Each structure stands twice: as C-alpha cells, then as structure tokens.
Simulated scan of single mutants.
Amino acid sequence: MTDWINDNLWVVWIGVAVVLAVAELLSLELVLVMFAVAAVAAAALAPFVPPWVTMIVFGVVSILLLGVIRPRFRRKLHSGPTLTVGHHNLVGHVAVVDEPVSDLGGRVAIDGELWTARTRSGEQFDVGARLTVVSIEGATAVVAGKVAP
C-alpha cells in the first residue's frame, strides 16, 4: 500500500484537492479552495520530486494564496455598489408635494411613487413644493425643508 502511494502520490494530491474543493462549497470562505489549488500544484510536481518536496510546495503555495490572492478575491467580491433595500433607501431623496402636507398628513411623490407624508415641524407645504425625506415611519414619509428646484 505504501509503495502504491509513493508511486502514485499525484493521485493522492488530486483526491485531497477534490475533497477540499467540495468542502469549500459548504463554507464559501475562499480558504479551502486555496488549499485545493495548492494540492493541485503539489500533484503536478509529485511525479518529478520526492514526497517531502510536495509537502513543502503545498505549504508554500497555500501560504501565498491565502496571503496574496484570497484578500484580493474577497475585496473584489465585496466591492461594488451597495444595494440598500426597503424603504430606508428613500431617506434623503426629494419628495414633491402632491397634496398639501402638514404635521397632520398629506401626500408626496418620491421617485414617482405616491406616499402619505407629514412634517415634524408643524409647517405646511403646498402642491409642487420640493422637500427632503427625513425618515420613513411605517407607510408615511416624514418630510422637511424645501429643496432648491
């Protein structure tokens, strides 16, 4: 058995790589896949070098991949536009008054959608006024201050 492993060490490294790659599918942390790639590198060298060299290659490639490639992949995966979902992404948007708005109620259009609205300050705004959305409370937009046209 030991002779077969020594003669076919590349097969063992490929088996290790496959197991690590499958385990990576469960974790999705980009750690085990780096070890799997290192195992493939060791498997590529296994027919040509002694077994202890394949272990060193596995260790060095693993460290390089974890230290250099993984951080770049993680940055790339986590970069890009931040997608705010729900009504909280409307805070700071411009609201155009559709029905007069006061602290008792009213209606505004925010990004083309009609919302019930009210003010906190007790001010009243007439139709067509451009206001800023301060917060969203349930299905009501709290608006304040006029925005320049």
Rank of each mutant, 00 (worst) to 15 (best):
F48Q: 08
A39P: 03
M55E: 04
V143P: 04
G92I: 01
P50L: 10
M1H: 09
A42E: 10
T84V: 12
E113K: 13
G67P: 00
V96S: 12
V11M: 13
H87Y: 03
V53I: 07
P50H: 05
I5R: 09
G145L: 13
V60P: 00
A95E: 03
H78L: 05
D7W: 15
N89K: 07
M34C: 13
L32H: 13
L90N: 02
I110G: 05
V94F: 05
W4K: 03
I69D: 00
L32V: 11
L25C: 15
V147S: 12
G80V: 07
E113C: 08
V127S: 12
I5Q: 09
V12T: 14
D126T: 03
R107F: 04
V57C: 00
P51K: 01
R107V: 03
P71A: 03
L20T: 10
I14G: 10
F35V: 09
V33S: 09
V101G: 02
D103K: 06
R118A: 01
L66V: 01
V108K: 06
S62D: 01
L104M: 12
L32E: 09
I69M: 01
G15C: 14
F58G: 08
V37C: 06
A36D: 07
L131C: 11
F58Y: 01
G67F: 10
L90P: 01
S102Q: 09
V18G: 14
A144G: 14
A21L: 14
H87W: 07
A42I: 07
L64T: 00
A117F: 11
G67I: 00
V61W: 01
A44P: 01
D126Q: 13
R74D: 02
V91F: 04
P149E: 11
